[in-house]
Design a protein around this nucleic acid. Structure first.
Lengths: 214, 214
DNA sequence: AGTCAACAATGACTCCGGTCATTATCTCTT
DNA sequence: AAGAGATAATGACCGGAGTCATTGTTGACT
């Protein structure tokens, strides 16, 4: 039995909620700054709350555990990546070009800020759990699957392969390459690596129109 | 300048060393039992040392951190897997059959004891760090790479693909599938999943007699 | 304006991983 | 056999993550 008097749906933000978001954001920013200064393990929750000017206990009202900060960061990053992919994807593109574009976007978004990716993947996966990454991964997976299914309908993609499995392979390649890139020397190009691998698996997926190889 | 008086070379294990190994093993067994009973987080180091009948501090003489137990387990498992692959691999086999055999071995070794894999992958990767898994992964990677290079020399494998990248793809597929399997329902067959994915990427790698490009 | 239920903030507290100075045990030398 | 040097065992201790009972705020309703 809820009644809202001041209009209806746009009235979503009460002072409380605004302050809640504000506090969470404040904690998040404080934490991120400290992490970049002193690393994840080197930063205590108390330091974070002190910088955010709240009491220690408050932290746990917003993040169930310290690692949840990394999950939060991960979510934000993945959202940005998916938005960027959505923006750039064009229905007219062929499957192979679409895949190229997606891998390209994934690469460049990650190459933008290696330090954050370090936290999200190494640290978050390291400590927080793989689950965190999963929501985003699921979305990515759906994009691939959809693309391939559509490609099969259009006769661009080998009909005999399971779109599900193919999508899983693409996701696997992406995450594995990301990890490899994080551990590689500075000069290593994620973009080139992904494109090269895409080139290889494309041979298994894409029906070339009298083109390709040799 | 070492002198051993009680015989010579077979006398490699002094009482100390035997006891050292014994203690480490005792700690390890106690820990594994407790983990299966109460989970990793639910088990404290003190419980482990108590069951192993040593003082708490002793634990850290053998494992630098609690997670090192998982790394230790992981190493043991990976060694067993690689040994099993070595045993079963036959130089006469073609590349595709070899790959099938490897994936099959990987699947069955892991399917033997899902709980342990949970610990090694989820927990160890979750908390201990990805580094732990890396040694074994590196070996696996080399096996793939070697196999493919040899296959290219024999003309079985598409010469244009980089053996390095191809090996990375195979490893990526393996680990990703392992994770998916761990999170899947009980009925899900890792073996079938891997074989199906291998079938797909094979199309990109293997030059079938009478099929495929060039 | 005043009341009150809902919710958030707080920090003292608990628990546990990890350290370290000290003690106990072993091996080798003389 | 006794001493010395090496190595392992020990548990008091510390710091930080996470809990929770209490206190402080907010805004819906009268």
């Amino acid at each position: 039995m809820k009644r809202v008097l001041t209009s209806d749906s746009p009235r979503s933000l009460t002072r409380w909620e605004r302050r809640k978001i504000e506090t969470k954001e404040k904690l998040f920013r404080a934490a991120l700054g400290l992490f970049k200064e002193k690393g994840f393990d080197g930063t205590s929750v108390e330091e974070i709350t002190e910088r955010a000017d709240v009491a220690k206990g408050t932290f746990f009202n917003y993040f169930p555990r310290k690692e949840a900060l990394l999950a939060f960061l991960g979510e934000k990053r993945m959202e940005a990546i998916l938005r960027s992919i959505d923006d750039r994807l064009d229905g007219d593109l062929g499957v192979k070009d679409s895949l190229r574009l997606i891998f390209d976007t994934l690469a460049s978004e990650n190459e933008k800020d290696k330090a954050s990716v370090q936290f999200v993947l190494i640290e978050s996966v390291r400590r927080g759990g793989i689950e965190e990454v999963d929501r985003g991964r699921g979305d990515l997976y759906l994009i691939f699957q959809h693309l391939i299914t559509r490609g099969q309908a259009k006769g661009e993609v080998e009909a005999s392969v399971s779109a599900r499995k193919a999508a899983e392979i693409l996701v696997a390649i992406y995450f594995h390459s990301l990890l490899a890139w994080l551990k590689a020397e500075a000069g290593y190009s994620l973009r080139e690596d992904l494109q090269e691998k895409l080139e290889i698996v494309s041979k298994a997926l894409i029906l070339s129109r009298g083109n390709q190889s040799c």
